[in-house]
């Protein structure tokens, strides 16, 4: 597990910054909730009149006057986008950085098989995402308790679990892309995450584009659906996990045969 430890150590600062940033933003939103609660009936009316914008973010199915409803929309934006971008960056740089930083020549002239390196790097990507999500979850729980509200455990854990799976999917796809690149991967990774987010918004707005939820990693993170159905939509989750596996298989397929610079 030498490579795994080294990868986690090298991403320590980035993980800390992203975890604290996302956690802090969610905490700020939660701490604002008591003040906003009294004005929520007006806010709900406002959102009801915003048509497709309301649908795009799933706000038509949530009650903003409750902490669950408020949290679902706000966490969807902060943890959803922030987590997706972080997962994309960590995933896409995992293999690419060895050639980009010219360290492949150092690493792969030690008795380390490519399969071992890929496996430990993949494990490190998922370990880093897990750490980030645990930190964010702790921020959320502490903030909810700080404003004197009761923690809605089942919904909270389900929402966060869906985001974790979404990050795993994006990281897996970007990990596969990483094997083909030697530089410039961050833009591609962020592009993949942004594209997935956009697909979900289009799917939410247009009924005829609903099928895009099968492609978008955000399809199964719709908090309104999770709260109302008390679970994650498996029909959207399964294609996502298949895409993740394809990404990982591509990473092994390409990187084990690649000429390293």
């Amino acid at each position: 597990m030498t490579i795994l430890k080294q990868e986690i150590r090298s991403q320590k600062t980035a993980t800390l910054i992203w975890s604290l940033s996302i956690g802090f933003m969610i905490a700020v939103c939660i701490l604002m909730f008591p003040e906003m609660k009294s004005q929520m009936s007006d806010v709900n009316k406002l959102f009801a009149s915003m048509g497709s914008f309301t649908q795009a973010f799933g706000m038509d199915k949530l009650n903003f006057g409750t902490l669950i409803g408020f949290y679902a929309v706000e966490a969807g934006n902060v943890l959803g986008l922030g987590g997706a971008f972080f997962a994309a960056i960590v995933g896409v740089s995992a293999l690419m950085k060895e050639e980009h930083g010219h360290t492949a020549e150092f690493l792969f002239t030690h008795p380390v098989s490519r399969v071992r390196a890929i496996t430990e790097k993949l494990m490190s990507v998922y370990a880093i995402l897990l750490i980030m999500n645990v930190v964010v979850l702790v921020f959320s729980i502490v903030s909810i308790l700080a404003i004197g509200e009761e923690v809605f455990w089942q919904e909270l854990l389900l929402i966060h679990f869906s985001y974790l799976l979404m990050q795993f999917e994006i990281a897996g796809i970007c990990f596969g892309i990483s094997a083909f690149l030697t530089r410039g991967g961050i833009g591609i990774g962020v592009g993949v995450a942004g594209f997935m987010y956009l697909l979900n918004i289009i799917a939410n707005i247009t009924e005829s584009a609903k099928f895009l939820k099968y492609i978008s990693a955000f399809g199964y993170t719709e908090s309104s659906e999770i709260i109302n159905n008390h679970g994650i939509e498996v029909k959207y989750l399964l294609p996502g996990m298949v895409l993740m596996i394809i990404g990982i298989v591509c990473a092994y397929g390409k990187y084990t045969k690649k000429d390293l610079r």
């Binding site: 080294q6 090298s10 930083g101 360290t103 020549e105 150092f106 002239t109 008795p111 098989s113």
Partner: peptide, 20 residues
């Protein structure tokens, strides 16, 4: 390959290490 690398030391012409 791994058996070779277990018993070999290599110094590249331009050596790079991980930042920090």
């Amino acid at each position: 390959k791994e058996k070779i690398l277990e018993n070999t030391g290599y110094l590249p012409s331009e050596i790079h290490f991980y930042s920090k």
